Computed example of a mutant assay.
Amino acid sequence: LYLKQRPEELEKLVEIAKVQSTEASNAIEGIVTTNTRIRQLVEEKTAPRNRDEQEIAGYRDVLNLIHENFDAIPITQNYILQLHKILYSHRNNPMAGRTKSVQNYISATYPDGHVETLFTPLAP
């Protein structure tokens, strides 16, 4: 009923949610830009200026694809790799759309020089 009576309001809420989701998800990864730039990038009113903005634009593209086609997207390895390729489509990343082949670690280097592993992601 709400979709039929107030589609403009619902669409505005969806756009706000996309901006907030893009900002929050990228901030977790340490990817940031100004609120104005995020809004412009999500609304496709500007081109990315740097690596962070390229990643934001890729996230936007994947988010839009999922939002528009959620009911037809199969949860398969091939489709997930396709989404990964789109995620990195604004960057020249040779791993885009491919599974990792090397173990990685999330670590911290302290002022005294010692390194501590904080998190070990799943193995390749």
Rank of each mutant, 00 (worst) to 15 (best):
V19M: 09
N78M: 13
I86L: 14
M95L: 07
E8G: 03
T22N: 04
Q54G: 12
Q77C: 08
G113M: 12
T120N: 08
R51N: 14
G30E: 05
P94Y: 02
Q5S: 10
P124L: 07
S21K: 04
L87H: 05
I75S: 03
L87G: 02
N69C: 12
N69P: 10
N93W: 01
T22R: 02
L63I: 01
I73K: 06
R37H: 10
V62M: 08
I28Y: 01
S21L: 06
K4H: 08
S21W: 07
R51L: 15
E116K: 13
P94Q: 02
D71Q: 11
A123G: 11
L41M: 08
H90D: 03
V32W: 05
N69I: 13
Q54E: 15
P121T: 13
Q20E: 15
T99L: 11
K12E: 14
L1F: 07
D52Q: 10
I106H: 11
Q82R: 07
P48Y: 09
G58M: 08
S89F: 01
L122G: 11
E8V: 09
H90G: 00
Q77P: 03
S107K: 13
S25D: 00
E44V: 14
V62F: 11
S89Y: 05
E11R: 10
N26G: 00
V42I: 09
K18P: 08
L122R: 14
F119S: 03
K12V: 06
F70P: 00
T36R: 14
K4G: 08
H67D: 11
E55I: 07
I86E: 06
R91I: 03
I56C: 05
E29C: 05
A17S: 14
E55R: 14
Q77S: 12
Q82N: 03
I28P: 00
A123Y: 11
L65Y: 15
T46G: 05
I16N: 12
T76P: 05
Q77V: 15
F119C: 03
N64V: 08
I75D: 04
E15A: 13
A96H: 04
E23F: 11
V115R: 09
L63Y: 02
K12C: 05
E68K: 15
S21Q: 03
E116F: 04
Q54A: 12
Y105L: 15
Q82W: 04
K85L: 03
K18H: 10
H67P: 00
I106R: 10
S89L: 04
H90N: 11
T36V: 15
T34N: 10
T46H: 07
A47F: 13
E55V: 01
T36L: 15
G97F: 06
Q40K: 15
E43H: 15
L10T: 01
I106N: 07
G113E: 13
Q77I: 15
A47H: 13
L87V: 00
M95G: 01
K18D: 08
L10V: 09
I56V: 06
